[in-house]
Design a protein around this nucleic acid. Sequence first.
DNA 1: GAGGACGCATCAGCATCGCTGATGTGCGCT
DNA 2: AGCGCACATCAGCGATGCTGATGCGTCCTC
Lengths: 288, 288
Amino acid sequence: MDPHLLRTFVAVVDHGSFSVAASALGYTQSAVSQHIAALETDLGTTLLTRRPVAPTPGGARLMEHARPLLLRLDAARADLARLDQAPAQGLSLACTPLSRTALLTAPLPGEGPHLRVLGREETLQAVTAGEVDLALVDGAAAPSDPLALADIGPLTTLRVAEEPLALVLPAGHPLARRSAVRLADLSEAHWIDAPDTGIPLPRLRVAAGSDGFRARTTYEGTDVLMLGALVAAGHGLTLLPASAARLVEGVALTGLSAPHLVHRVEVVHGRLPEGPARVLAERLGAGA
Amino acid sequence: MDPHLLRTFVAVVDHGSFSVAASALGYTQSAVSQHIAALETDLGTTLLTRRPVAPTPGGARLMEHARPLLLRLDAARADLARLDQAPAQGLSLACTPLSRTALLTAPLPGEGPHLRVLGREETLQAVTAGEVDLALVDGAAAPSDPLALADIGPLTTLRVAEEPLALVLPAGHPLARRSAVRLADLSEAHWIDAPDTGIPLPRLRVAAGSDGFRARTTYEGTDVLMLGALVAAGHGLTLLPASAARLVEGVALTGLSAPHLVHRVEVVHGRLPEGPARVLAERLGAGA
DNA sequence: GAGGACGCATCAGCATCGCTGATGTGCGCT
DNA sequence: AGCGCACATCAGCGATGCTGATGCGTCCTC
């Protein structure tokens, strides 16, 4: 399981093609084919169906391991690389769109803090690679349970805030009259897949223990109001933290009765340098 | 950062010698030397001091990444390997010594459950590799915070139980008269390093934000009463969950005032097959 | 239904890599 | 000061992994 082979495998799955993965990686198609063949004989399973190129069940399983593994490798590299460099001045942080509210409650210490809003994966990668001192990440979890974040490095997480989740429906939707809905009953509904703004659909599958929650519409972006507008226009349902959901116009809101899920924000950091970053981390964690 | 190079690096650090690491890995000393040289030029830092062979600061940092990375690689291998095999019948679980109590509260479902008591690392590895369905892991954490477990794979953790931590002192120790002690005041005390039975000392360093907590005595084993006997005999201090500490004879117990730490047990599992394993996981998690 | 085109598999050849065994070198111990 | 141990270096050889060319099966087109 050479990382090069894993990288090629991931590229092939992402691109859905040996040859375009090859050109993306700067290899020849022949090399990519040999990489995949090497992986398959090494692991003793076929990983991909050809024509169309798609992961087999075993390949899908490998994908779950491969990406975090590669992320972690890169993180280790980056961590070592910035050992020699002088520690950056000031405070830099990254956060996912829905963790924004938590940030408002704590004043930012230090001068000229630098803030980036990113998707979940990128946020974690940024803090692991040391590009930012702190990160705020949000997600759905059982009350007082930690978020299940991709494990890509030695990170510390601290609970910052929790609030109820709201199911966002188009105004006039039949379910809007109910005060609470069971998640499992919604597995066959039309969902909007907004992995970086709402709750990722795979997370719902795990929570409901169901195989449904297939996306009808996908939304790539970090704007909550845009996501709300998609719901209002009838493109599908989504889950949002109650405080954010209340800002959306033209939709109805409902609670979730089972399983009991809340929206949770956590602050994530690696080794914290003394200074504003540590101050902010303690302030955010203490407010919880 | 070829995994082979990382593996030899870890072996060299573990053995404190190029040549014995070489024979342990089945390489020649020359190959090991070249591996380390390759890693060092690749990362642009010296990783080891020679004579004596010990990790430099950079090397120590790399060690923090390397071991989880290799564990995760092995876990991915094992996960893929057991995809083809028939799912094992029955229920098998692993637990750390101090998580035993949590197990007593829930009857084991199914027939002929198989139980193993292991250290923390081995327990996690067992569940990641799919050798056992469930694992119970204990540790110290802030109240209602999750344990900071080594991240070696896609695992789900659920809180099972929390109880106070007790500082275990030899009877007649001057601190025994105090009702509570600050952890930071104990950084220079004599501690027993019992990573698999008590709380690992590195964990205390993190909790107290101190560089102390150096081991005077080390204890390798999983017997709590033996650890207690070492304390009673004056070999050093240790922290135990209150319920276990009360069973030790010839010692005095005291609370910890700051930071507020509790002993916590979590159930850890990967993909749960339907059946007794899932039943038990739900039973354990629900009792929390 | 036949022809063509596209895309993955296979093959031969060659450069490079990574191992071994031998030798060099520097530190520490006596 | 000298010896010896342990890591570094070197030459050489086998194995690895890449490229470019070719083969082959599938799907699309007419």
